[in-house]
Design a protein around this nucleic acid. Structure first.
Length: 725
DNA sequence: AGCACGCCGACT
DNA sequence: GTCGGCGTGCTC
């Protein structure tokens, strides 16, 4: 009987296609093969094999591709992912296959140099430095040699032309050197050692290290969580297995890689969108061969073909950046847990401010909970106090209340650094005409236009629409009546400059002039202490450590509490907890002052009490009462199109056929259902279901009954604990 | 993802 | 009369 292979092709196809296996071709599941598809040849993966009586009219498999087959574990992951996210199976496969990128530029061949034995024709001071450095005759990289000799590259090039140095082709740089789990390190504190022990256990064999178990590692900022999970990574490496550390892309900084190097002697292999071309392929190959033992990467690293995965760590597990919002909509933290189950390896979720769902899973016993109670080295957590803005009003037109100003003064007098946090970019969130009352609103969205004084523009933070700030009111024509209402960081900077004219002040937001690179430099400057007052948006809440910072002033803790997002409380608490936790991480203790109009609000009260458990208890209770995740599910149909009208019309048409069964409610378009994301308008239809309902089937059915998306209009399904906004 | 097929506008 | 725009549909 002829052998038939079901081949899954990495395209947006939901089913595998059947092909005849030619006699003599011995295939196994997972093999990568070439198959004809229409007029061309494509690559695919053997998803199933069986003998069938009929099937003689199938096209034959062209042949096997010389590449390591896709492991059972990865195929299971692809199946699981496609089923859960409702993405076509082929699209899920594409993420695990990521074919060698033809367009990727080839790596420049590396050239090494060594002394040829011939002295330079002409000797100069710079040249003799180079010759001295190269005197041992060893092969070095050109730039390494130049650096060692303390001269520029052109001197080395000159000596090559001269013939005093000869060039040798070098093997390409290894993707990663092996990390040393027993590299000398700073001793752990007792609390850290206990936590590390809880992650590793004293199991004699790797399989006993909590196979397939998920552990929530919770520790306040500065508690040294990283060092704790490094121990788990070290133990994993000692046992000859591979470890994957997932991080939000923005957290993959040189600072973190250096910390890793401090523990393991070398920097880890890294995987993120910036790693391209040959290097990407070599890293994949190294991972597949089991030669690369530790990978630190962004969410896509989850689909690397590990041969022998022994541990997954998801750092900052609460981060929203783990959510992929285009193509296949998935949450990398959850997929990490799934992969851990499939591979039979433990998964560590680390965070100072875990997501509600992870806390609930820890409480219910689905995850093990390991907590680090205090900061490393016995350093105190910052004192947090509220400034009730109803009692301590700022002067008219000002936004810093007198106690806040005094606290900044005292901090500066002590020679320390202060951070004023306001999560609002620009100058003023609203512009109003005092003559006619007109409020400047986005023509696309329902949001106010934010004044950016530096750019002299009114900007929509929702869709990016911008217009020049008018001289006179565009409605009534009155001059000098346009009034900015409320503060953004630019306006705070103006106020702070007036209050502290002598101090070095810096504003850090994503609008930072000069782009990401300049911003990075500026963060270094702040970390070094070459700045007195930092005014920043959420950008300063994470990442860089500022050792000189002893005061964090939150200027408006109430922002975000009324956004309509069911996760508003959680997000606000996480953000405020993180930003206040930045104070006092250096030598001197820190404190935080929080300006608020509602100190009794549960989120603010919990923050002030310094008792995070209190927040989680209350929020979990509130979620349960409201049937919100993780006690029910939120899912969304996301309609996207280039034209706003198209997206909206299709969304409304879908809404009309919703017809939800018992236990499912369509919350309809939220307050601002339209958002412009990378040039496409998105319209979201939000669905809430009770626990235990098969949302996937319902959404699929809903889509089938609705109008077919036409043109370049697309409908995506988002089933996830974080599918809202 | 490609690639063809098809149905409407401005050109040798 | 055709060249070509891209919207639509199919590929075992």
């Amino acid at each position: 009987m002829p052998v038939v292979a079901d081949i899954l092709i990495p395209l947006a196809l939901d089913t595998a296609y059947s092909y005849a296996v030619p006699a003599g071709l011995d295939l196994a599941e997972g093999d990568i093969v070439q198959v004809p598809l229409g007029p061309r040849e494509t690559i695919g993966v053997v998803w199933g094999l069986d003998e069938r009586a009929s099937g003689g009219n199938l096209r034959p498999v062209t042949g096997r591709v010389e590449a390591p087959p896709l492991s059972d574990a990865l195929r299971k992951l692809v199946d699981w992912l496609a089923r859960y996210t409702l993405a076509p199976k082929g699209s899920a496969l594409a993420m695990a296959l990521r074919l060698p990128d033809e367009t990727a530029r080839n790596e420049a061949p590396r050239i090494g140099v060594r002394t040829s034995g011939k002295p330079p024709a002409r000797q100069t001071a710079a040249r003799s430095k180079v010759m001295a450095a190269a005197a041992d005759g060893a092969v070095r990289g050109k730039s390494a040699l130049a650096k060692e000799a303390g001269v520029s590259l052109s001197v080395v090039d000159g000596l090559i032309d001269d013939g005093a140095l000869e060039t040798v082709a070098l093997m390409p740089e290894p993707v990663a050197l092996p990390p040393d789990p027993d590299h000398p390190r700073v001793p752990l504190s007792d609390a850290q050692a206990d936590a590390a022990h809880a992650l590793i256990g004293n199991a004699p064999s790797p399989t006993e290290v909590a196979a397939g178990e998920t552990i929530l590692l919770e520790g306040v900022t500065g508690s040294g969580k990283t060092e704790v999970y490094f121990e788990a990574v070290a133990e994993c490496v000692r046992r000859g297995r591979q470890a994957l550390v997932l991080m939000p892309e923005i957290a993959l900084t040189a600072q973190f890689l250096d910390r890793f190097a401090g523990r393991f002697g070398v920097r880890p292999a890294t995987w993120h969108s910036g790693v391209g071309g040959k290097r990407r392929e070599r890293l994949r190959a190294g991972v597949a061969a089991g030669e690369v033992s530790v990978v630190v990467g962004a969410r896509s690293a989850l689909f690397l073909p590990f041969r022998n995965l022994g541990l997954i760590v998801v750092d900052e597990e609460h981060e929203t950046a783990y959510k992929q919002e285009d193509g296949v909509h998935y949450h990398a933290r959850d997929m990490a847990v799934v992969r851990g189950k499939i591979e039979g390896c433990p998964v560590v979720l680390a965070s100072a401010t875990p997501s509600i769902e992870s806390r609930v899973n820890a409480q219910s016993g689905r995850y093990r909970h390991v907590a680090l109670p205090g900061r490393f080295g016995g350093r105190p957590l910052p004192d947090i106090a509220a400034i009730d803005m109803r009692l301590d009003k700022p002067e008219r037109g000002r936004f810093l209340s007198p106690p806040m100003v005094n606290a900044v003064k005292a901090t500066l007098a002590a020679g320390d650094q202060a951070l004023l946090f306001l999560n609002r970019r620009g100058y003023a969130p609203l512009t109003l005409c005092r003559a006619c009352g007109h409020r400047y609103q986005c023509r696309n969205c329902s949001t106010w236009l934010v004044e950016h004084r530096f750019r002299r523009a009114l900007v929509c933070h929702q869709c990016g629409y911008a217009e020049r700030k008018p001289e006179a009111c565009t409605e009534c024509g009155a001059f000098d009546h346009l009034t900015p209402c409320g503060p953004g960081v630019e306006r705070i900077a103006e106020e702070v400059t007036a209050l502290f004219p002598e101090q070095r002040i810096v504003v850090l937001s994503s609008d930072f002039p000069g782009g990401a690179e300049r911003l990075r430099q500026e963060l270094e400057t702040v970390a070094a202490g070459d700045c007195d007052i930092v005014i920043g948006t959420q950008l300063v809440a994470k990442g860089h450590n500022f050792p000189h910072l002893t005061l964090v002033g939150v200027l408006d803790a109430d922002i975000g509490l009324t956004s309509g997002d069911p996760r508003a409380a959680e997000r606000t608490f996480q953000l405020l907890q993180q930003v206040t936790g930045r104070a006092g991480r250096g030598e001197r203790p820190g404190r935080a002052l929080v300006q608020t109009y509602q100190p009794e609000h549960p989120v603010i009260a919990a923050l002030l009490s310094g008792d995070a458990d209190r927040f989680y208890e209350e929020e979990i209770w509130a979620r349960e009462a409201a049937g919100l995740p993780p006690f029910g599910r939120l899912a969304a149909l996301i309609v996207s199109a280039e034209e706003r009208e198209k997206a909206e019309a299709h969304g409304q048409a879908l809404a009309r056929v919703a017809d939800p069964p018992a236990g499912v409610s369509v919350l309809g378009p939220a307050e601002a259902p339209l958002a412009l994301v990378r040039g496409r308008w998105r319209f979201r239809l939000l669905v809430k279901t009770e626990r235990g309902i098969d949302v996937q089937s319902y959404l699929r059915d809903w889509l089938a009954r609705g109008p077919k998306p036409r043109g370049n209009l697309k409908v995506a399904i988002d089933v996830d604990p974080q599918s809202f906004l």
